[in-house]
Design a protein around this nucleic acid. Structure first.
Length: 317
DNA sequence: CCCTGTTTATACACTT
DNA sequence: AAGTGTATAAACAGGG
């Protein structure tokens, strides 16, 4: 039982920005893309704090999706009825939170920003994204279809759980919650920063799992533990990112910044992916104070992260 | 009508 | 102090 007199543990605001929350949601899905409603669902499933004032935070979240270049919008295919588009992470956004803080990025991801300020290039965002998603689609789909066939699943109906098989590569995006967790636990001194409730006391970098329902989420739903090294930041082997894949027909076409989008080719041919892992609430949750605001808790030492790996991958392109 | 998505504006916190 | 990133509010348009 939670502390008496207190709201339940989990009503504390998680130490994540909407950007990181959204990124987590997207990354949690095998296809790395989710419709808005599933992003909502993901967040509400795991962060009880967001089960209230939905109007408010959902408006903010939508604002973030539109406003930040790190999110790309992917249309649905005609045969995939439903409202709204899918949302995915821009392949080049890399590890935006490499500084270790999921509340505030060091720098905002901008398309055509740092590495390729080529004004002539057609919107880097759309371009990269399209390319990336083509590969994603290829990989994921083959895995999904194989899995569906094996499992006698008609059409990957909503509610399926193929998480174990639909991760063709052992990759984890920097935003994948697994990574976030792993990173946080790696934080030097991180564990020392816990309150008795297992809640970070003074640092945004310390483990934030208590905010989430279903501590075992990664274990149960994402048995993607893996050996280090052989994966890129995009959910596919580095090789396929660097080479190949260019021959694919443009499957997904990000909409946002590309006036020249091919109209006809819509979204991934994948099923509508439900928020993965709707674990039963375990209510670990935090109690401790969100000291983040007032306390200038040092952002902690930047971790060597997959960001560097990502950068090199992107640079190749 | 409600949901989705875009845009503008303001306030605040953090970084440099 | 200025610049930047994030949160929030709100207006608006388009689509199912």
């Amino acid at each position: 039982m939670p502390r008496p007199g207190r709201n339940t543990y989990s009503d504390q605001k998680p130490p994540y920005s909407y950007i990181s929350l959204t990124a987590m949601a997207i990354q949690s899905c095998p296809e790395k893309m989710l419709p808005l409603s599933d992003i909502y669902k993901f967040i509400m499933d795991r962060f009880p704090y967001y089960r209230e004032n939905t109007q408010r935070w959902q408006n903010s979240l939508r604002h973030n999706l539109s406003f930040n270049d790190c999110f790309i919008k992917i249309p649905r295919r005609p045969d995939q009825p439903g409202k709204g588009s899918f949302w995915a992470l821009h392949p080049s956004c890399g590890d935006m939170f490499e500084n270790g803080s999921f509340l505030r990025r060091r720098k905002r991801f901008k398309v055509g920003g740092v590495q390729a300020p080529d004004p002539l290039a057609p919107s880097g965002k759309a371009h990269d994204a399209a390319h990336y998603l083509q590969q994603q689609a290829k990989l994921r789909l083959s895995a999904l279809h194989a899995a569906a066939a094996a499992a006698h699943l008609p059409q990957l109906p909503a509610g399926y759980n193929l998480s174990s098989v639909s991760q063709p590569s052992s990759f984890k995006h920097p935003f994948a919650i697994e990574n976030i967790i792993a990173r946080e636990y790696k934080m030097p001194g991180g564990l020392a920063a816990f309150s008795s409730a297992g809640y970070p006391l003074h640092s945004q970098l310390t483990p934030a799992w208590p905010h989430m329902y279903g501590s075992g989420m990664m274990d149960t739903a994402a048995p993607i533990s893996m050996g280090p090294g052989d994966y890129s930041a995009y959910g596919m082997p580095l090789k396929s990112l660097c080479h190949g894949g260019q021959t694919l027909p443009a499957v997904p076409v990000p909409i946002k910044p590309t006036p020249a989008s091919v109209p006809g080719l819509h979204g991934l041919p994948c099923a509508h992916i439900p928020a993965f892992l709707a674990n039963s609430p375990q209510s670990l949750s935090p109690t401790s104070p969100q000291t983040g605001r007032s306390s200038p808790a040092a952002p902690g030492e930047p971790l060597p992260s997959s960001a560097s790996l990502l950068q090199s991958v992107v640079a190749v392109h």
